[in-house]
Design a protein around this nucleic acid. Structure first.
Lengths: 216, 216
DNA sequence: CCATGCCAATCTGTATACTGATGTTGGCGT
DNA sequence: ACGCCAACATCAGTATACAGATTGGCATGG
């Protein structure tokens, strides 16, 4: 199964670890050592090094003197990314509105249903998973590749931040509310409404973050 | 002089060739061969490979079966980048408005003066150089690092497109007009005015491009 | 018991060697 | 002459080996 993307070893390793990073499967304690990963894939250090260096340059990892690890974003850096999101995501979501298929909308509704259920269960991990699914669905519908890639780039970098804010009850409720409105807006194929909704969504996310991290 | 950025060989080579690419010193006919560059720097292939692969992943180069070369952007890809510019540059320039120093404004005025002179001389290369200087000045004033890096990333990719449109007389006049207005807007420290100006600027650039490349 | 300095382990950066894929050229056949 | 095929050349991907740097531990001394 891991040998699906097998054109080049380094690409296979890159995609494997990109997926693990985007799914939040790497924690801050983990140290990614090229030699260890090379052993896992039964290859030499070189393709692993290529993949890790690429992930580092893209901002997913940080190169330390002792292996690669998740980067520790500073408070201002995170606020900078919120500004980028504010500029890009509303327009991107609006562009995706016309592109989403019926299957996409069904999957979206299903993910939002799972999101709503977490209000009762309190299952933060399920909320996180549903939230990721929802975002993945609409982002994949963005027709502008350059825009989509740019969004995907910084999304993974602030994954850790998101996971933290989800534990807050008020943020949890707000997030689910937005999820519900997204279904409605996307189903209505109303680009302008989607654009406004996503602007409010990003602003609400930033506000949640600022409220929970008043430092600096 | 080439050994100024000497922390790591690969970084030095990366920065050297990034500069050459951003200054447009690499043409479409050139083939960058790691072995040849390694000889030029008197190092092995590895750090050169690292640098070229990094430039490739960032979109500055394209990896072919026969060396690395400038990528051939397709028509839709270029239009996608114009959309990104439309979303980011107005806000970025507005943010830079408050950050530019008096020295920056002086340099800006000087560069615009050089731009104006090309209206008489018709020196396209000087226009290109002035245009790059102007952009470099305001972009370096953008306080949001993530935003600035994102803009810099795609700027270099469409360098070839810019160079092409400059040969058009109407575009030339339009460009110089915008340069004049930029000086005025930045000097007035009017963020809203700058934002609107840059939105019109990007739109005008896109319009010029569409007019000169009606294909597809 | 704690501080300081040295040593060893660890991991990345760089060098060299080999392999495989792809394009190119020249020769052969029609 | 023209087209096809095969041998060759070129260059990126991968493997292995070595060097340099930083960190953590251990020992020694206060």
């Amino acid at each position: 199964m891991t040998e699906r993307p097998k054109r080049h070893i380094k690409d296979a390793i890159y995609e494997t670890y990109l997926g693990r990073l985007q799914r939040g499967e790497i924690s801050h304690e983990d140290r990614l050592i090229d030699l260890a990963i090379a052993e896992e894939f039964a290859v030499s250090r070189m393709p692993v090094r290529d993949a890790l260096m690429r992930l580092t340059h893209e901002g997913y990892l940080e190169s330390t003197t002792r292996g690669f690890a998740l980067p520790n974003l500073s408070h201002p850096q995170i606020l900078e990314i919120f500004e980028l999101r504010r500029l890009l995501e509303p327009r991107a979501a609006a562009l995706a509105t016309a592109e989403l298929t019926e299957a996409d909308l069904d999957a979206l509704a299903a993910a939002v249903a799972r999101s709503e259920q977490t209000l009762e269960s309190g299952d933060v991990e399920a909320l996180y998973a549903a939230s990721e699914d929802i975002r993945r669905i609409w982002i994949m519908g963005v027709p502008n590749t350059a825009l989509r890639e740019t969004i995907l780039r910084y999304i993974a970098q602030i994954q850790c931040v998101r996971l933290a804010t989800l534990h807050d009850a008020a943020s949890h409720q707000t997030l689910v509310d937005f999820h519900r409105q997204m279904v409605s807006a996307f189903n209505g194929r109303n680009g302008a409404q989607v654009e406004l909704l996503f602007l409010r969504f990003v602003l609400a996310g930033e506000e949640s973050y600022r409220r929970l991290h008043p430092d600096s």
